[in-house]
């Protein structure tokens, strides 16, 4: 009988949250407390300091690049921990390993769709500093295309197309690449992961190769997130 205590707890939390709701500012107004001087600083100064139009990418890959490195490490640790937990899960009690689908329509449609999804993912990674997107979003799209391949064609064929060692090497190399770009700032005489402050040329605003280190970091994060998703799914799908 855990239903009654659970319901009571949920009702109590609902009451507290409903009280805060009556005090909350109206949705979509310009007087929300979050629209403060920090937001104004980023919106006003970002284009001159980081040299790219996309403010969100500038925040995560330039102003808070160190924090984003920690975030990438969290993903890295999650994959490592999942691999460690699942090591040698040959699956005695698991009914059967994930198999390829027999559905012809699914196979043909996914074969047609996957290249377009991958091109779009690469576009989102590479143009993440100019238009909405970035390393995380594009990497997820790229990883999603490979996840579709895994679900449709099964782990065996996926392991032939993308050998598991490749995924692990790509992931480690991308994490190392991030640190190397950061150390580039130190070599140029500024802080770790410094971009414009270290004298990295920002290029012409609006061009593909602009924003200095942001573009390099975004590329590394895109590769890393795609490799993370593939590695995770391969581990979860079981031994090949």
């Amino acid at each position: 009988m855990r239903h009654l205590p659970a319901l009571l707890l949920v009702v109590a939390i609902a009451y507290v949250l409903a009280l805060t709701l009556t005090e909350a500012p109206a949705f979509g107004g310009l007087d929300v407390p979050a629209r403060n001087e920090v937001m104004r600083f980023y919106l006003d100064e970002e284009l001159d300091q980081a040299g790219i139009p996309n403010t969100v990418t500038a925040i995560i890959f330039d102003y808070r690049a160190y924090d984003t490195m920690g975030e990438a490490t969290v993903l890295f640790t999650a994959v490592g921990a999942a691999a460690a937990v699942l090591a040698g899960h040959a699956g005695k009690l698991v009914a059967r390993p994930m198999a390829a689908t027999d559905d012809v329509i699914l196979r043909i449609v996914s074969r047609m769709v996957i290249p377009f999804v991958q091109v779009f993912g690469i576009y989102v990674v590479v143009y993440g500093h100019l238009s909405p997107g970035g390393g995380f979003a594009g990497g997820t799209i790229l990883g999603g295309s490979m996840a579709l391949y895994l679900f449709v064609f099964g782990p065996k064929r996926t392991a032939r197309k993308i050998p598991p060692a490749w995924g692990e090497i790509m992931e480690g190399a991308a994490a190392f690449w991030y640190v190397l770009v950061g150390l580039g700032g130190v070599l140029l005489g500024a802080n770790f992961l410094a971009n414009a402050a270290a004298g990295v040329p920002l290029g012409v605003q609006g061009q593909l190769f602009s924003g200095g280190a942001i573009w390099l970091i975004g590329l590394g994060v895109g590769v890393k997130v795609a490799a993370t998703i593939v590695n995770l799914l391969v581990h979860l799908a079981g031994e090949t």
Partner: peptide, 24 residues
């Protein structure tokens, strides 16, 4: 506000990591 988008991105990464580890 771009800050909230950046924060949500961090949150999504943490959510993916915890979900993957829990499922494994």
């Amino acid at each position: 506000n771009p800050l909230l988008a950046a924060i949500v991105l961090t949150g999504i990464v943490i959510a993916v990591s915890t979900t993957a580890y829990a499922l494994s």
